[in-house]
Design a protein around this nucleic acid. Sequence first.
DNA 1: ATTTAATAACTAACCAGTCAGTTATTAAAT
DNA 2: ATTTAATAACTGACTGGTTAGTTATTAAAT
Lengths: 210, 210
Amino acid sequence: MQIEPLPRQRRKEARPAEIIEAALLLFHQKGYSATKLDDIARFAGVTKGTVYLYFSSKEALFKAAILETIQPNLDRIEEAVMSSQASATQRLKTAMSSWASSMNECKGSITKLMIAEAGNFPELSDFYIETVVKRSRKLLIHLIQAGIDSGEFRPIDADMLARTIFSPILLTSIWRHTYAKLDPITYSLNQLSDFHLDIIFNGIALSEQS
Amino acid sequence: MQIEPLPRQRRKEARPAEIIEAALLLFHQKGYSATKLDDIARFAGVTKGTVYLYFSSKEALFKAAILETIQPNLDRIEEAVMSSQASATQRLKTAMSSWASSMNECKGSITKLMIAEAGNFPELSDFYIETVVKRSRKLLIHLIQAGIDSGEFRPIDADMLARTIFSPILLTSIWRHTYAKLDPITYSLNQLSDFHLDIIFNGIALSEQS
DNA sequence: ATTTAATAACTAACCAGTCAGTTATTAAAT
DNA sequence: ATTTAATAACTGACTGGTTAGTTATTAAAT
C-alpha cells in the first residue's frame, strides 16, 4: 500500500498557523528534542522545506508556537477582572474561573512545555516568567490584598496564598495534558477551582482545631 | 592548555550510583533527548564505554535513574503515617510534612522528569502513576475520610481534596527545580505545606461568605 | 601471569538544514 | 477564450554534523 501524495496547494496565509498548531501538538507530546521537523511538516500537510519558508529554524518555530499561543490570552483576563467593582471574594472567584477556562484550551500545554524545556531556552523562559507568570501573580496578590484591606480576609501572606490558590488548576492542567489516559481526572478545572476557593474561604474544620 | 586525564580507577561498586546521579542531574536539567551520553559519562568521571558496562542503553539508564530514586522513599512515609494513632488532622499534617521534606531532595526532580518525558516512556509512566501517584493519593484519601468519619472535617469530596492538598507542594517543587533563578521561592516546601493546611482547616474568611 | 574494569577510537544511523527542481497560480499577449 | 510567459509556493533528495552504541586495546588489581 502506497501513500498517495495529496495534490499540491498554494496557501501562503494558512500555512504558518497550521505548522504552529502541528508543532505545538508534537512538542507537547514528545518534547522539543524528540520531535522531528519531518513529523511536524507531515502533520501540517506540507514537507520540511515548506516549514523553512516560514520559520528560520526549529528553535524559531518553537518560540513562535509559544508566543502566538500565549499572546492572545494575556490581556483578556486582566481587563475583565480589574474592571469589576464587586467584592474581593467575588473578584477572586471570577479571576480564577477565567483562568480555569483558559487553561482548558491551550495554556496547560504551554505551561508543561515551558517547564520541560526551560533549561534549553533560558531567554524564552525569562520572557514567560516575566510576562505571563509574574503578571498573573501580581493580579492575584492585588485581589488578595484588597480582601485583607476590606476586612473580608484575615491578614495572611498574599504572595504565598497567590501561589497556593493557583497551584491546583495549574498542576491539574499539566497533569491532564500528561496523564490523561493513565490517571484521568473526572471533574473540570472550573469545578476544581470552585472547590478549592470554597475551602480557602471557609476551611473544612467543623470545630476549632488550629 | 590540555586537560590532564585522571589516572584510571577500578571501582566496580561505586560506578552505577555515580552514573545514575549524573544522569538524573543532566536529564533533569536538559531533558532526556537533549542529554548526551558522553556528557553523563564525563560528569560521572568515566567514559561512555564504562556507562555501557553497567547499563544496556540510554533508555535503561533513564529507567534505572527513575526507579532507584523513587524506590527508597516509597515505603518510608506510608509506614510512618499509618502507624500513628493521632487525630486525622494531626496525621494529615505529619504526612504532608514528610512529603514536603522528601520533595526537597529528589522527588521534585523525578516529578518534573516524568511529566516532561511521559509521552516518550508510556510503560514507565504507567508504573509511576500506579506505584507512586495512586498509592500516595490513596493514603491521603484514607486520612481525609478518617477525618470526615470522626467528625473533624465537614463532608467533602476526598479525592478532590487529596489532589488539591498535594498540588501546591508538587507544583512548587517542580517550579523550584525549573525556575530557581528566574522566579525564586523564598520559603520552604514545609512552610508552604503548613500554610496551605492551616487554610484548608480554617479558611481565610473573617465573616461567613459562602 | 591472568583477569577484567575502563578507555578511546570507531561505526552507523539519524536528523536539522539546504537547494535545485517542480508545479500551481497569475497575468500578459494573442 | 486560449495560449504563453513569469512568478513564487512547494517539494524531496542530499549533506554535514552529531550521537547512541561497539570493540580493540590498555592498565589496574590480584
